[in-house]
Amino acid sequence: MSWLSNALSSSIGRKIIMSITGLFLCSFLVIHLIGNLQLFKNDGGVAFNIYSHFMGTNPVIRTIEFVLLAGFVFHIYEAIALTGRNKAARGPQGYKVDNIGQNSPWQSRNMGLLGTIILIFLLVHLYNFFYRARFGDLDPDINSNDDLYTLVASSFKQWWYVLLYVLAQVALAYHLIHGFKSAFQTLGLTHRKYTPFITYFGYAFSIIVCAGFAAMPLYFFFLK
């Protein structure tokens, strides 16, 4: 199987892993967003807690969780590996004056920075919600499900928490604006007919998904 590891550790191979894991994580975002839309339901969190109970206990979902974790791990690992390689490729002496900003979009050049912001957010997010839902001691709601809803609602009443969420979603949007269409480019899935559509779709996807997520803390902070 050396051919496989050789292929996957080549510069293009690593990029292919980045793009496949990236698109997989995009699909996770969609599921996550759709599920979390329950937060907007005006039922005191009953539906949301049913949903989160299901997500926390269903064996299929619990299995997929590991796949998801692997997706993150590979995405991050490859990012670090590629960044190291790419930094070394410039050589010992960089440019004294570089106006690269004149020939490329900012987000394309700062995927690592954006990714790091997202990662930090992710850790906070996981600790606050995922960890406490799975391993913490949440009070039961009227259906005896863990009352994650109340935790979410109270968290989103803190301004700094809302701010972190919104900023993270902006970073994610920029990350996706480059990442979405870039994944198709890396997989060679381009065509004169379809690529423009993919590009526009990627834009719309990035903005709608991230706006959806950002709407949740804002909703609780301002309207609840």
Partner: peptide, 18 residues
């Protein structure tokens, strides 16, 4: 060609477009 490209120490494409 890709193997040689990697061997020469060029970086990987991140679709920046520069």
């Amino acid at each position: 060609m890709v193997a040689q490209m990697d061997k020469e120490g060029f970086g990987a494409c991140t679709n920046i477009g520069s």
